[in-house]
Each structure stands twice: as C-alpha cells, then as structure tokens.
C-alpha cells in the first residue's frame, strides 16, 4: 500500500478521543448540568421511555440483593421500636392516615446522577419517633429494609429534621417497588444511599448510630449533599 499519499486518520481519531475524554473529565460536570437543563423538557414529555436510557436526569435502580423486594400495601407494616417508651407497628393505612408532609426536592446520588424536583409525600420521621417516645439517652436511629440486607442509620438529631420523612407517595402514586415502595425513607439533605428503600423497621439506639450498608463499604456516615464523600454538588436541602 504503497507509494500513494495517505494520511494518519486512525491516529487522529485515537488522539482526538483521548483529548475529548480528558476535557470531559475536567469539564464534564458543567456539561452534565447544562444537558440536564436542556433535556428536562424532552424527558418530561417522552412517552416512549427511550429517553430514560440517556444518562441525563434519570433515576437508576439500585438493589443490593438478588431479588427486587416487593410487598403489597395490604401486607406492609412498619415497626418502630428500640430505646423507646412504647414500641408499635403501623399498617400502610395507619401510616397514610397520619398528618402528612409534601416535599419537592432533588434526589442526588453519590455516584453523580441527580433527578430534579421529585415530589414526595410522607410522614415526618420525627413525628413517628415522638409517637413512640424516645427514652433519655437515645442517640441514633437504625433503619432496616425488608430486602433483608440493607441498613442505614442517622443520629437522633438528623432524624428529627423536618425534611426527613417516611415516604409512601412519589409523584402522586404509591411508591413502586423499583423505587423502594411501598414505604421508604427520604432524607432530603443527604445522598440517596441514606434514603433506605423498602423500609421495614425503625429502631432507636442508645449508642452512636452504627454504620449502614454502604458506610461499611467506605461511604461517609454524615452524607450531606455537597459536603461529604469528596463531592461538591449543589445541596438538596
């Protein structure tokens, strides 16, 4: 192949990709924000669901176990106990009959994705704790999931924040099993891994809150959005 003039297009493609890749690493977070603003109106109107395959403004479904846990609203119950005066169990109907709170806030994952303006409805975690009456010396709150694996925890002070709710409704529907329904925790000011899906029980401890599933694997316990895990996302609180 010989004599004739030719150009090293292959090398240019290769080096061009390395250049674009490096630029993307350095400036990609800005590009991501811009694309989320650009794509938001499109994904909102997309009936085909195809846009959910784009890496923009989408929930990604994370489960740490083999099966996706699933429980009907009639079979569901929430146990509240531990270091409290009066432990109790609530059915789904009893939970939804309590005074509720609506929050419309961004959901930020520690792996980088963010979904803007998600509408959650639920009961303040603080109200559920008050109903049980925490004993003096209570320090932490542990959450377990009915997937049988996942746990999370908060300090009592964090748990009493008004933007920490036990949610049962997302965007006007009972939370689907993909999204951790029928009942999950939603800790608005923290990264998504704190918002324990498939919530089974709430246990008050008289010790500092033990590490949750991902904290054992290196994530920060105080998972404030933008101020932990080495990230600087815009806070969601």
């Amino acid at each position: 192949m010989p004599i004739e003039r030719s150009s090293p297009v292959g090398r240019r493609v290769f080096l061009g990709m390395l250049g674009l890749g490096a630029a993307g690493i350095v400036w990609g977070s800005k590009a991501q924000d811009a694309m989320e603003k650009l794509f938001a109106p499109i994904t909102a109107k997309d009936g085909t669901g195809l846009s959910s395959l784009l890496p923009v403004g989408r929930f990604r479904i994370y489960s740490v176990t083999g099966d996706l846990p699933s429980r009907s609203t009639t079979a569901y119950s929430l146990k509240v106990g531990g270091h409290v005066d009066s432990p109790y169990t609530l059915s789904f109907a009893e939970l939804t009959a309590m005074p509720s709170l609506q929050l419309t806030k961004d959901f930020q994952c520690v792996t980088g994705w963010r979904v803007h303006d998600v509408k959650w409805t639920g009961v303040r975690l603080g109200d559920l704790l008050d109903k049980a009456g925490t004993k003096p010396g209570a320090r932490g709150v542990v959450f377990t999931s009915f997937d049988g694996e996942y746990t999370e925890s908060l300090t009592l002070e964090q748990a009493r924040r008004s933007d920490v709710i036990v949610a049962y409704d997302m965007e006007g529907h009972v939370i689907s099993s993909d999204h951790g329904g029928p009942v999950r925790l939603y800790v608005a000011p923290m990264y998504g891994y704190k918002s324990c899906k498939w919530l089974d029980s709430i246990q008050v401890t008289d010790t500092p809150p033990p590490s949750g599933y991902w904290e054992v694997r290196g994530y920060d316990a105080d998972a404030w959005v933008g101020k932990s895990n080495g990230r600087d996302d815009t806070p969601t609180a």
């Binding site: 990709m17 390395l18 690493i25 977070s29 980088g112 080495g230 600087d232």
Partner: peptide, 27 residues
Amino acid sequence: VVMLATGSIMHWFKPFPVDWRTGATFV
C-alpha cells in the same frame, strides 16, 4: 483507553478533584 481512565477515576475517586468523578461518569 477512555473507558479505562474514566472507569478508574469513578472507582478510585479519592485522589482526584471532586468534579472529576462527575466528569468521568459523564464521559
């Protein structure tokens, strides 16, 4: 090459500037 570099930054993100993990995920 790009996937190796960005995947490594996503997995071992501690030594890198904070923005890079989001940028690497994007790429």
